[in-house]
């Protein structure tokens, strides 16, 4: 069983829940930027939550199927058509052999997730099917899908169509608030600058991809004076190259914050001022350029409570779809 790519969209990649364990060699975990959306798409079609699907940013692909396939689309809001007939997002529907799945223009969010009953069955690379284009790893030859690709799909366990109570999804407020735990090299910033970072309104810059999201519109950073440590480099935003973590916020040259995401670089020579909490990482994957964003300071207790709330929401969905 397989589907064929008629049009690939802008940048559509095979993603699952990633390949943890190789970041110490510079190979990031990767996987779906909005893990919640991929998990739910897989639940809808009866897959393991970590099965591989497609992640398409801003524009959907056009796909034809060689066999009846149960499909679910979650994440961003984008009209869905099977041979021109509309279908609902956050639901599982059958695409019959020979039919074409395509998408309309993006209405809200940034990334859709397409799950296929049985899951995409491309070869595993370091334990995952996720595409890491920088390292030419995973997916289809380590790259985004292209017109003409034939993508294998595994054995489905069900062909039952169903939908989801959208009340179970998290509401998104505007301007979007990204919760941040300060730390790492936070002490490099002056108290006035620290306060301003949270007071300023930021917008998502065009340079926003799987590696990281850049923000602009806020004031440049002000650093506490010091003599730069040996080996760090002369700019006050430089440190002796250290590890970066998923969600960590760096500000090269003190100008524009970058939140590292699933395909993060694993280290480098810029200071980091803290990190977006794990519960808000999915949200970043749905931000379009020019979206207004505020960073909100939280405590570890609040971060863990948000994490628990996210876990509970997934548990409710699991129960609803069981």
């Amino acid at each position: 069983m397989a589907f064929k790519v008629v049009k690939p969209g802008l940048s559509t990649t095979v993603q699952d829940l990633g390949r943890p364990g190789y970041f110490h060699l510079g190979i990031p975990e990767g996987g779906a930027m909005d893990r919640f959306a991929l998990r739910v798409a897989n639940m809808l079609v009866g897959n393991d939550e970590g099965a591989a699907g497609l992640e398409a940013v801003f524009m959907g692909p056009e796909l034809t199927f060689d066999a009846d396939t149960l499909v679910a689309v979650t994440g961003a809001e984008m009209p869905i058509f099977v041979d021109g007939e509309p279908r609902e997002g956050w639901s599982a529907f059958v695409v019959k052999a020979g039919q074409t799945l395509r998408f309309g223009f993006l209405k809200a969010g940034a990334r859709i997730y397409i799950a296929f009953g049985g899951g995409i069955a491309t070869p595993l690379a370091l334990g995952s099917r996720s595409t890491y284009p920088i390292g030419a790893l995973g997916g289809i030859d380590g790259r985004a899908i292209a017109a003409g690709d034939v993508v294998p799909v595994g054995e489905a366990t069900t062909m039952t169509e169903r939908s989801l109570d959208r009340g179970l999804l998290a509401p998104v407020s505007v301007p979007v608030s990204l919760r941040v735990l300060t730390g790492l090299y936070w002490h490099r910033l002056t108290p006035a600058c620290q306060a301003r970072f949270f007071a300023d309104e930021w917008v998502v810059a065009p340079e926003a991809d799987r590696m990281g999201y850049r923000f602009r519109g806020g004031a440049p950073m002000e650093f506490v004076d010091r003599e730069q440590p040996f080996g760090a480099g002369s700019d006050p935003s430089n440190i002796v190259d250290g590890c970066y973590s998923y969600g960590s916020i760096q500000v090269p040259g003190g100008q524009e914050p970058i939140v590292l995401h699933r395909d993060a670089v694993s280290g480098g020579g810029y200071f980091t001022l803290g990190a977006v909490i794990s519960a808000d990482m999915d949200l970043i994957g749905q931000l379009q350029p020019n979206t207004k964003v505020r960073f909100t300071e939280v405590t570890m207790e609040e971060a863990l409570a948000a994490r628990a709330a996210r876990r509970d929401r997934l548990a409710k969905l699991r129960a609803a779809l069981a």
Partner: peptide, 19 residues
């Protein structure tokens, strides 16, 4: 020692580079 978000502990032995 510092937390990097809710999933990481960052340990900096020294600010400057040395073997």
């Amino acid at each position: 020692y510092s937390f990097g978000g809710d999933e990481h502990v960052y340990v900096e032995i020294d600010e400057e580079m040395s073997l």
